[in-house]
């Protein structure tokens, strides 16, 4: 009972702080921030990073990292575009999700069975996925397919209210899997102490493959949302695909800082909203986009991190 009351108090305080922050943003921007049209843009922007961040949170929960997620999103988006233009919505959704899930699942098979540190293996995989994307974009056989934008008729998942519906569904799925399923608890157990988990009968390799599937699903949906929003995916080379996960990564890091007080799955969409609100505010205030805005994001992360880690004594790596 006491615990529930504490959780409720934390949730109310958290929501109040968020609302206060949004009101302050609105005041600073001279009432432009919370204007309907502007806020709609903010909300539609948070869906892709939230899905990617949920995918990453499952990866991090079991102690792995995957730098190839950007490359996977590019290929899944290509699949969504090609099959979407051919078969409509079933093609957009199924192709994107299947390719995303399959590639992340392959990644986890490689992590689980080769025992190569995941950040090293995933950088190699990122290079392979980027090269594949480049090949698809330049090969005569596929060039016309992947350079054609997704038909506007099939892009509703990138727009409100459908993107918000997808976000809500993704949130419910992530929350239940992470907190209320055996596989979710096993994933967290492996990340916490692999030896104890193994001794307690958790099948570590099988659980890792589950992580691949679950993360892959979220990354696949992220690709569907991204292509539905932008219509066309540009090819990435020279490891530039990694830049696609910087903002989701910042969101997960922010959510991890908050996780002692707020469940990480809940914190992710909230952190997405905070980060994109900051970007939006900076744009309204005519701060140049790109480097300066990202420097502001970096500074915000550090300040928030210092506040969140207040009182901690252990060395954080």
């Amino acid at each position: 009972m006491g615990n529930n009351k504490k959780n409720l108090t934390t949730a109310v305080a958290f929501a109040a702080a968020l609302a206060a922050a949004l009101v302050i943003f609105n005041v600073v921007s001279g009432g432009k921030f919370l204007a309907r049209e502007n806020f709609t843009v903010v909300v539609s922007h948070i869906v892709y990073p939230a899905f990617t961040a949920w995918g990453l949170s499952f990866l991090f929960a079991c102690g792995y990292t995957d730098m190839s997620v950007g490359g996977v999103v590019v290929l899944a988006a290509f699949a969504s575009t090609v099959f979407g233009n051919l078969y409509g919505y079933p093609g957009v959704i199924i192709a994107g999700v299947v390719v995303g899930t399959l590639l992340i699942f392959i990644n986890f098979n490689i992590f689980a069975y080769t025992k190569i540190p995941s950040w090293i293996a995933s950088i190699s995989l990122a290079m392979i996925y980027e090269a594949t994307g480049f090949y698809l974009k330049t090969s005569n056989a596929t060039k016309s397919l992947v350079t054609t934008a997704l038909n506007r008729d099939y892009r509703v998942l990138g727009q409100l209210p459908w993107s918000a519906v997808l976000l809500a569904a993704g949130f419910a799925a992530a929350y239940i899997v992470y907190n209320r399923t055996t596989v979710g608890l096993n994933i967290r157990a492996i990340g916490g102490n692999t030896e104890v988990s193994r001794a307690m009968g958790v099948n570590v390799n099988r659980t890792l493959l589950w992580v691949g599937l679950i993360s892959g699903l979220f990354i696949g949906f992220a690709a569907v949302v991204q292509i539905s929003y932008s219509g066309l995916m540009t090819v990435k080379t020279g490891l530039t695909s990694m830049s696609m996960i910087f903002q989701p990564l910042a969101i997960v890091l922010l959510a991890q800082i908050m996780k002692k007080r707020v469940n990480i799955i809940i914190a992710i969409p909230v952190c997405s909203l905070i980060i994109y609100s900051i970007f939006n505010l900076l744009t309204i205030l005519h701060v140049p986009s790109g480097t300066l805005q990202e420097a502001c994001l970096g500074a915000f992360l550090i300040i928030f991190g210092v506040m969140g880690r207040r009182g901690g004594r252990e060395v954080v790596k």
Binding site: A61, L185, R188, A189, G191, G192, N193, E195, V196, S197, A199
Partner: peptide, 10 residues
């Protein structure tokens, strides 16, 4: 077990 312990993150 003497050394096994618990999963701190759960």
């Amino acid at each position: 077990m003497q050394e096994l312990g618990v999963v701190a993150s759960l």
